[in-house]
């Protein structure tokens, strides 16, 4: 209903996209529209220029390079769900995004760069040691997921950069995903968890919606690697997360549920 009069640029190639990004650092980047269109209709975003990557070629691939899985930033949740190669954690997360209509448009890159702490797929990247490949006319660089989100909707992303792909190294271990949303579908997260554990070697305990950014719980991870009792791991993570009260839930609930989810998973793992 609120007509947006912004000028729209629709690059067909990545090179064009990067040049346009360099020329228009103020432009709003658009992919599947499932966030941007909501902001426009709510009147909270009033861009004059929009860089629409939906039709940009080369962003929807899923392949391997240098021993890593490479996910194009333009892959939709449906693409992920239909791919047998996609990591099970990511598939679990993609299935919880909105419902079918949203999954058909919502992209991995959009979720990452929208940067909402409640983004359903974001803890998965933390659990998988993913790196984000950022491109600009100046070249390429990789940023670990663990350092990409710096504060509430603050990303390590320069005004001339675009996220082009996500690199996931070959990781092992038991993994677990859990979303606690407001309902079974079309739900915004109250708590999201993605975890991975290689007994005695590596642990990833990553959360969404319990702090200003998607986050890992480093102290709890260390304790888990060191073989600390589950009680101790849970106690540490409950200290590390910083949930808030909002219209959807309470800080108390989020903190306790985060702990319960991790406890349930850790107790289900084979010992040793």
């Amino acid at each position: 209903m609120l007509r947006c009069e912004a000028e729209v640029f629709r690059p067909r190639t990545l090179n064009d996209a990067l040049q346009m990004r360099a020329d228009m650092p103020d432009a709003t980047v658009l992919a599947g529209g499932t966030d941007v269109m909501v902001y426009l209709e709510a009147g909270v975003l009033k861009p004059t220029r929009i860089l629409d990557l939906w039709g940009c070629q080369g962003l929807r691939g899923l392949g391997f390079a240098d021993g890593s899985q490479v996910y194009g930033a333009g892959l939709t949740c449906t693409d992920v769900l239909q791919s047998v190669q996609a990591h099970p954690l990511l598939r679990d997360a993609a299935a919880t995004v909105g419902a079918v209509q949203i999954q058909n448009r919502a992209t991995l890159g959009g979720n990452i760069c929208n940067g909402s702490p409640a983004g359903d797929t974001l803890p998965v990247w933390l659990a998988l040691n993913a790196e984000f490949e950022l491109a600009s006319v100046r070249g390429f660089r990789r940023v670990p997921a663990a350092t990409f989100w710096r504060g509430y909707k603050q990303m390590d992303l320069q005004p001339d950069e675009l996220l082009v792909s996500i690199h996931v190294p070959a990781v092992t271990g038991n993994s677990h995903f859990r979303k606690v949303g407001t309902r079974m579908a079309q739900a915004i997260s109250k708590v999201i968890f993605a975890g991975r554990s290689v007994a005695g070697r590596e642990a990833r305990l990553a959360f969404g919606a319990v702090g200003p950014t998607p986050m890992r719980c480093a102290a709890a991870e260390e304790a888990l690697v060191a073989g600390a009792p589950v009680d101790e791991v849970v106690r540490l993570l409950e200290e590390e997360i910083v949930p808030i009260d909002d219209v959807r839930s309470t800080a108390l609930y989020r903190r306790k549920v985060a702990g319960r989810i991790v406890r349930r998973w850790l107790e289900s793992l084979p010992r040793g």
């Binding site: 529209g33 269109m37 629409d52 939906w54 058909n104």
Partner: peptide
């Protein structure tokens, strides 16, 4: 507002017509 684009159901309130 669900319609299908190239067969896939989408929310037409979230699709800019340029796409």
């Amino acid at each position: 507002c669900t319609v299908r684009i190239d067969g896939a159901p989408v929310m037409s309130c979230l699709v800019p017509v340029a796409q």
